[in-house]
């Protein structure tokens, strides 16, 4: 089992992590060891439904509107608050 540095870069991107090349190499070795550890699963196979739930069905609460947490209190948790909103770096610009 081997994971290339390019694959690790993609995994880091999918994981939203900024990692150095040294970190990527170290984690590549760890992931290979964990994958090998997981090879005990290879004798298992069979259809598994995407919606099965081993612990039983979830019981959803009634879909009715109730008072939630205070907006200002929630906004106060973010360092990026601005004029009653959360402001993030611009993703799309008008040209």
């Amino acid at each position: 089992m081997n994971i290339s540095i390019e694959e690790m870069r993609l995994l880091a991107q999918l994981s939203r992590l900024a990692l150095t090349d040294d970190e990527l190499k170290k984690f590549a070795g760890d992931l290979c060891a964990l994958e090998e550890f997981s090879s005990a699963l290879l004798p298992f196979f069979g259809p598994v439904s995407d919606t099965d739930e081993p612990q039983g069905l979830a019981q959803m609460r009634e879909d009715i509107v109730r008072a939630g947490l205070d907006r200002e209190e929630l906004l106060a948790l973010s360092r990026l608050r601005e004029n009653g909103y959360i402001a993030v770096p611009c993703k799309v610009r008008e040209v």
């Binding site: 995994l11 994981s15 984690f27 992931l31 997981s38």
Partner: peptide, 19 residues
Amino acid sequence: RSEGFGVEVKRRILFGTYM
């Protein structure tokens, strides 16, 4: 995320994403 998470958390996130 990279500043906030430690090594074990990063490892498990990467492995979970890989899986």
